[in-house]
Design a protein around this nucleic acid. Structure first.
Ligand SMILES: [Zn+2]
Ligand SMILES: [Zn+2]
Ligand SMILES: [Zn+2]
Ligand SMILES: [Zn+2]
Lengths: 139, 139
DNA sequence: TTTGTAATGTTATAATATAACAATTCTACT
DNA sequence: AGTAGAATTGTTATATTATAACATTACAAA
């Protein structure tokens, strides 16, 4: 198997692509839906030897910091980024019927929000939007 | 003391403005910052007799359902709505320095997001945006 | 090698949230 | 008033999510 985009990223940045990190990212990437930390843990049984929560949370934090994983706060669950580039924050459409999520990954804050930020002289580091409802299949 | 807006709302809608609900809302409204459920619990000691988590969570759910309280998902904390009317979802600017939050309560989804929703034929029920960074005082 | 740093392992516990069922309170109707 | 039904609350227990603290190991640079 070829070197993954994430592994290449680590090589280029001088970051360590370790087994726990690789395994955790792999599980999240393979999940078709947002996956909770403890479900990641459960699916790592084969690949790591009796992993514990801190192992998972550390790896998730690492990948989130580098834009490969996002947290969907309203679900306490994680997804692999679908965009090909790092971006500030995350935006998702979440179906409350089937659990499917679609990443929107807007590169810019919408004008209505940007206006408020500017008015407040707020120094934004990240932003997230989570849109809930029913997808076309579920409604 | 006059009848609060929330109490009046309940009277008009035929909903029960009970002591646990009143007390929980009061604590959240008085908090200057987002407050966690267990902090609400701690501050209820005087007014209710040895309240337990379900009491708090039920009251919070009630008020969230009627638009008087919002949850800030990225903080696992709750705030009283600052808008004078019910609205779909919530939007906040959150300072990671001092913890201050400002409610934006846009009535309409920004165009960039609305476009995606329409394209996906998604039936939206609510949306939230949480913008993190440093406020003008903290930066 | 040694030496410092980053990463991981391990144990324990903190923090957040809900399930399940019993008891109570309220409302509407006789 | 009495009573049935529904809503709300009380209570116990437990589920779920996340982190603190410290020991150990792996790595990279000198
Ligand atoms: Zn992304
Ligand atoms: Zn769906
Ligand atoms: Zn509001
Ligand atoms: Zn601030």
């Amino acid at each position: 198997m070829a070197v993954s985009q994430a592994e290449q990223f680590c090589n280029e940045k001088g970051l360590r692509y370790t087994e726990p990190r690789a395994a955790v990212l792999s599980v999240i990437q393979k999940s078709k839906k947002p996956i909770g930390a403890y479900d990641v843990l459960a699916q790592l049984g084969d690949r790591l030897d009796n992993p514990k929560p801190p192992t998972i949370y550390r790896a998730i934090e690492f990948w989130m910091g580098h834009g490969f994983v996002h947290k969907i706060e309203s679900l306490n669950a994680f997804v692999a980024c679908e965009a090909g580039h790092a971006h500030k924050g995350s935006q998702f459409i979440v179906c409350d019927g089937c659990g499917a999520v679609e990443e929107i990954h807007l590169c810019h804050l919408p004008e209505a929000l940007d206006k408020k930020i500017t008015e407040s002289q707020f120094d934004m580091t990240r932003w997230s939007a989570e849109i809930h409802g029913l997808c076309v299949k579920c409604s």
